[in-house]
Lab assay of single mutants.
Amino acid sequence: DLSALRVEEVQNVINAMQKILECPICLELIKEPVSTKCDHIFCKFCMLKLLNQKKGPSQCPLCKNDITKRSLQESTRFSQLVEELLKIICAFQLDTGLEYANSYNFAKKENNSPEHLKDEVSIIQSMGYRNRAKRLLQSEPENPSLQETSLSVQLSNLGTVRTLRTKQRIQPQRTSVYIELGSDSSEDTVNKATYCSVGDQELLQITPQGTRDEISLDSAKKAACEFSETDVTNTEHHQPSNNDLNTTEKRAAERHPEKYQGSSVSNLHVEPCGTNTHASSLQHENSSLLLTKDRMNVEKAEF
């Protein structure tokens, strides 16, 4: 173990290094160091905050020279020094078990990766560091076993998940096959086929009936047209017969005018059967003409 005197000496050296690497504005270890034209180094955030307070150039807090945003430059070497100082402080805390008085939040800088452990060898070769390295080497064999167990647990979990997924996939297939086998029997399929065939026959029977009705309507229309044509021909046949009657009536009127007047009046009210309204109107006109002729003949006879 380190003596108290040596611990104090190391602590004083760390404090001196820390004062050199402090920012003059925030009085902390410089984060993202930036250098000016006057070779003074500050935190990048502190300098941008200072420049944004005034429009135009501002003055350096140490030498009062003008500073602009374009004049600022990043210093990589200074950032490396800060990183190495942080590593020294971490090693000091691990070796002594004491917390550094002016320690900052170094938890963000710590890294437990194997590459980081290899890099620590180049920091300080001390008894405390050696003991700590031995402890780490002793704890390393235990870690692979834990990793193997965790991997086995994960693989077993994956296997159970896969088996569950396969079961879920197989179950719908089985149910679907069961439904297909038990849903419709052979008799049901035959009945469905016969039902479809009967429906098709009914459709075939319905369509000819409609065509037959249309044919019957067409035949009825044709018969009505033929009947009207026969009526017209009958009226045409009746007209010459009426003319013959008129000639006979004229002759009778010349011989017996008194008797014919009474008979002509009675004939006005008689309509021949089986004739249309057109034929009756023609008869009325003929009878009126005959009456006028008879009157003329009677007057001539009187004179």
Rank of each mutant, 00 (worst) to 15 (best):
C46W: 15
R251H: 08
A4T: 06
C63S: 14
C46G: 13
K250N: 02
N157D: 13
N267K: 14
E74V: 01
R295G: 14
Q53R: 07
L94H: 15
V270M: 10
L27R: 06
L5R: 13
L146W: 09
E285D: 06
T160I: 07
N15Y: 05
F303S: 13
K221Q: 01
E22Q: 05
M127R: 07
D218N: 11
L268F: 02
N246I: 05
V13I: 02
Q73K: 09
Q11K: 10
F78V: 03
L94I: 08
N234K: 09
E99Q: 06
E271K: 05
K300T: 02
P208T: 00
S156C: 07
K54E: 04
A91S: 04
A133V: 05
S58A: 02
R132G: 14
L27M: 11
L50F: 10
F106V: 10
A301D: 11
Y104F: 09
T292I: 02
N243K: 14
V232G: 10
Q138L: 04
K87Q: 04
C196Y: 00
P114L: 12
T189I: 08
L2S: 12
S150N: 06
I25T: 08
E258V: 01
A220V: 01
I215M: 01
L5H: 08
L158P: 13
S156P: 14
K55Q: 09
Q80P: 01
G199A: 03
Q73P: 10
Q201K: 05
Y104N: 00
L217W: 14
G262A: 10
S150I: 00
K108R: 09
Q125R: 05
E9K: 13
S126R: 06
S280R: 02
M17R: 15
E148A: 15
E74K: 12
P141L: 14
R165M: 08
E249Q: 06
E187K: 08
K19Q: 05
F227C: 11
E99G: 09
K44T: 07
P141A: 15
V34A: 04
T68N: 03
P24H: 08
S79N: 04
G159E: 11
E140V: 05
R77G: 12
A16P: 15
L117P: 04
L50P: 03
S79R: 09
R212W: 00
L136P: 12
Q53K: 05
E115D: 12
M17L: 04
D231Y: 05
L62S: 15
G274D: 04
D184Y: 03
G56V: 05
E120K: 10
C60R: 15
Q11R: 02
S216G: 08
H278D: 04
T230K: 11
Q168P: 08
N157T: 07
E148V: 10
M47L: 13
D294E: 15
E285Q: 14
L21F: 07
T160N: 14
N157S: 14
D95E: 12
N52D: 09
E84D: 07
P172T: 14
R174S: 04
C63F: 14
L27Q: 11
C43Y: 15
S113F: 07
F106C: 02
A16D: 09
Y260C: 08
E202A: 11
N143Y: 02
S197G: 13
D231E: 03
I25M: 01
K221N: 09
I41V: 06
V7G: 07
K64E: 03
K87T: 06
S103R: 09
T36I: 08
R135K: 09
L151H: 13
P57S: 06
E229K: 11
N243S: 06
Q154H: 12
H116N: 00
V7D: 05
E236G: 00
I25S: 10
L86S: 03
K54T: 06
D294Y: 13
T166K: 14
K118Q: 11
D213V: 13
P61H: 02
H278N: 11
Q261P: 02
F45L: 06
T194I: 00
T76P: 07
A101V: 03
M127I: 06
K49E: 03
R212S: 02
L136V: 11
E84K: 09
